[in-house]
Nucleic acid binder design. Structure first.
Ligand SMILES: [Mn+2]
Ligand SMILES: [Mn+2]
Ligand SMILES: [Zn+2]
Ligand SMILES: [Zn+2]
Lengths: 138, 138
DNA sequence: TCGATCATTGAGACGAGATATCAAAATGAT
DNA sequence: ATCATTTTGATATCTCGTCTCAATGATCGA
């Protein structure tokens, strides 16, 4: 089995979405693939001087909507993107180094689901964020 | 027992905080006292033409830090303030009318507390938001 | 392969939300 | 009343985006 290149995966994702495969989108995606942790759109933009700012934001939105990226809000309110590795999950955010880690917790989901029944109105979704000082920063 | 006026309560809060009692702060606080639900800083500012924008924001931050106000993020990322009626709590946010309601749920807190023990690093806090369509909007 | 068609791009304007600057004004301890 | 210290607010600046619109480029049917 051959390892699929980033470009191949991006191409098939874009096709699946019915979006065109373009140079700028590939360049954004390549940079994203090299990233770990969380990053701001502005930082990404600075690393891509040959891609327009609007296109960086557009691609970020495209990939977030597609479930490839995740947009999170740091405790101070500033937005961060990170690669979305799993389906539904929540975030562990280090207040010190701003690393965003994903977590899932079945008991938590079960409880939130039970709570939905008790709540007046229709529950559409939820967001849980844990603010931590990560092992590395301790 | 006399009912304490808004001004009296603001004055004692500011004293407690070691901040000066000023006209602009009173004007912001008076308007806040008349509010229900959530509101944007910008809207507040427009209702206070005689208070500088910077001062509106500064006062909002002062009162948020003091625990009098609560800053929440709507699903679309736009910030909203609301009066913080109880100590620790979470938010029920109507995606339709943007109303913010507080809730507390002891089982949820207990679970989150238990989870903290399992999580690597030091848990500093958490945020839980439920996105709903409220009864009124249904 | 070639156009025609339609999506995409990017420069730049615009907007919300918020903070930085700093001289002038207000506060309150004495 | 004095005066050190805080606070104010006009204005500039910043981040995070979105909008516009002419130019460019991808895709597909012929
Ligand atoms: Mn995620
Ligand atoms: Mn609240
Ligand atoms: Zn960390
Ligand atoms: Zn509603």
């Amino acid at each position: 089995m051959m390892t699929t290149s980033v470009d191949d995966r991006v191409d098939s994702l874009l096709s699946k979405l019915g979006s065109r495969i373009t140079g700028p989108r590939r360049r954004v995606a390549r940079l994203l693939a090299s990233k770990q942790g969380s990053f701001s759109a502005e930082a990404l933009n600075e690393e891509l001087p040959d891609v327009g700012r609007a296109t960086v934001y557009r691609t970020l939105k495209l990939l977030s909507d597609a479930g490839v990226l995740c947009k999170t809000t740091l405790p101070d309110g500033s937005p961060r993107y990170s690669i979305d590795h799993s389906w539904h999950h929540h975030h562990l955010i280090c207040s010190s180094c701003r690393t965003v880690e994903e977590f899932r917790h079945s008991a938590l989901e079960r409880l939130l689901c039970e709570m939905s029944a008790e709540i007046p109105g229709q529950v559409l979704g939820h967001r849980v964020e844990l603010y931590v000082t990560c092992m590395h920063c301790l």
